[in-house]
Each structure stands twice: as C-alpha cells, then as structure tokens.
C-alpha cells in the first residue's frame, strides 16, 4: 500500500518561466517568458539551467526565504539529471535529484509532502524543467534535423516551474497521494508515449480510489500529465474496460498548452507540462475544489528503445484541495 493522507502540507507559492511557443499558446499568465530558446546563454543546456536558477531566485526573493529552505528537490529530462544538479550547486540547500521522466515533479512533491507531514523538515522547494531542444537532441534527432513525425508524437514543452511547500497554511492543501508502480504493457514505440503511459495512469488512479475508498466522482476534476490527445482516449477506454470506471471530469495537460496551429501533433509533453498548466491555469481559475493530479512518465532511454526493449511507465497521483 502506497497511499498516504496528509494533515498539514500546503503549497505556499509557485513561479514559472515559460518558453516562447508556450507563451503564444493557450495560457497567457506566466510569471516570466523567455523570448528565445537561448535565454541569452550560449547553449540550450545553459538556457535550461538559467531557467531553473531564475525560478529558484525569484521564489526565494519573493518569500524572503533565502537561507531558510530545508530541502531542494528537483528533476528534469537530461542524462544523469545534469541540469538540475548544475542549478543546485548555486544554492546552499540540501538537494535531492529525482527522476520519473515526466512524473518527476509529482515524485518530488510527494517526497517533500511526506517529510513535511512527519515534521522532518519545515519547508521544501520542488522544481522541474524541460527544454524542447535539449530533449530533441537527447531522445530524438539532432535539433535542426527535420525528421518526419508520426501523428502520435508529443512535443516537449519548454519551461521551468518551482513551488514552495511547507506546513504553513495557505489556499492550496495537499490532501493525499499515491505512489504508482512501474508497469510494462509491451509498448516499444517511443513516438507513441501516450500508449506507453496510459495503463500506468489508469492503474494508479484505480489504486488511489481503492486504497482511499473513494469514488471517481469524489474529485471535481482528474488531471493527467501528458498523455496527449490519443493517449487520453486510450486511458479512458482502458479504465472503462478494465475497471468499469467512466471518466467524465478528465482533463489532460498535453492539450492545454499549445493551440492546434502550432503543429504539436498529439500535444505537449515533458515534466513541466503538468505544473505549467496546474499552477498557471487550473489553480488561478478557482473553478475546482478537489483536484486529483496524475503525472505519467515513460521511463525509456534512447539505448533501450534502439535495442527494442519494451518501455516501462510510471504514474503518481496527488490530491489537492483548494480551501
């Protein structure tokens, strides 16, 4: 059993840096927007490190918490988490790097929430980032190479989101969480990550509802990370046939960032997709009170997919309450 309820964990503040394409999309209320993919640096790696640094700097400054953060938890898509680590050396804060691909942010939040709830730490800063061109280079083709794309491909979002969590009361309460299991449904196509991750999302949702003895209608909205348009259909169909759960109040962040004319195929992906939508749209709109976040991650590397190994996937769930 890996579901917990929290008594005293809150999200105090969030800060977002978004990429240029994201700012032209459906959401217009980002804290900061970088006008080009270099962000006044020489390489894309440096640009992503700078995005993370900017987020942390702003969060510390705005909340007057310099020198008072107990734990920094971060994750990104780069090999060996090099980007988050290069960012973390700039701050004198104990640091944990986490990787669950596109579910890294929620993994970080769950770790922080457990430690805050058990009073091991007072507060924590959780951060994530992804950069479209860094991911292209690492997982797909050289940046300037115009490879033909399958309709199922997702487009890695560019941006960085950080939040401050603590036991101090605020409007957003973390209510409960479920840590998912790694699942393998013999999907080998890294250009169809929606199909890879949909079973993980469905199984985690089912487990969450079962362990906390809840009905799916308990939540006002169930938000998945980056299944994309096609992945969402598979996710719903899977829930219906396997667990007889009919999902009406579902929203996938993959379709909430870009507009159709931006040609992003099946939608947006990357660890930043979910927090980008949740902290800049969902929580600002005040429409929902009980929110379940399910972040999904496709745990492959270029080597494992080239060697035709089935891709394992993971999903973590976290329930938020707006007070």
């Amino acid at each position: 059993m890996a579901s917990f309820k929290y008594n005293n964990v809150y999200i105090n503040d969030s800060f977002t840096v978004a990429g240029p394409l994201e700012a032209d999309g459906q959401i217009h209320k980002f804290d900061l927007v970088m006008n080009d993919y270099y962000y006044k640096e020489k390489t894309f790696l440096d640009a992503e490190i700078k995005m993370q640094k900017t987020v942390i700097d702003n969060l510390l400054y705005r909340n007057k918490l310099k020198g008072q953060i107990d734990l920094l938890i971060g994750g990104d898509l780069s090999n060996q988490l090099s980007i988050t680590s290069h960012c973390a050396v700039n701050f004198d804060i104990p640091y944990l790097g986490v990787y669950s691909a596109c579910a890294s942010f929620l993994e970080g939040m769950i770790i922080a929430a457990n430690m805050i709830d058990t009073k091991r730490i007072r507060n924590s800063l959780v951060i994530t980032s992804s950069h479209n061109l860094n991911s292209e280079r690492q997982f797909r083709f050289p940046i300037e190479y115009g490879a033909p794309r399958a309709l199922t491909t997702t487009f890695t979002a560019t941006g960085s989101v950080g939040i401050i969590m603590s036991g101090n009361m605020s409007k957003f309460k973390l209510e409960s969480a479920t840590i998912g299991k790694a699942v393998d449904y013999n999907m080998k196509d890294a250009t169809h990550m929606g199909a890879v991750m949909a079973p993980a999302a469905a199984l985690t949702l089912q487990e969450h509802l079962q362990e906390l003895k809840r009905d799916v209608d308990y939540y006002d909205v169930i938000i998945t990370g980056d299944l994309g348009e096609i992945g969402s259909k598979i996710f719903k169909e899977f829930l219906k046939t396997s667990f007889n759960i009919k999902l009406k109040n579902h929203l996938d962040c993959g379709g909430e960032i870009f507009v159709k004319s931006q040609e992003v195929y099946s939608g947006s992906s990357g660890p930043v997709t979910l927090p980008l939508v949740v902290f800049n749209k969902i929580l600002k709109n005040n429409r929902y009170k009980k929110i379940l976040l399910i972040a999904t991650g496709s745990l492959h590397s270029k080597d494992t997919t080239n060697q035709k190994k089935a891709i394992p996937s993971i999903a973590h769930a976290l329930s938020l309450e707006v007070i």
Binding site: A150, L151, Y185, I230, E237
Partner: peptide, 17 residues
C-alpha cells in the same frame, strides 16, 4: 487487460497516417 488485448486497443485508437 493483458498485453495482447491492450495492443489491440492501442491499434484501434491510434490514427493511421
């Protein structure tokens, strides 16, 4: 749902080029 059934479901819902 086993792996073969899932593959059928994915094939059904994936649009063709």
């Amino acid at each position: 749902m086993n792996k073969d059934e899932y593959k059928k479901l994915v094939d059904k819902l994936t649009p063709k080029e």
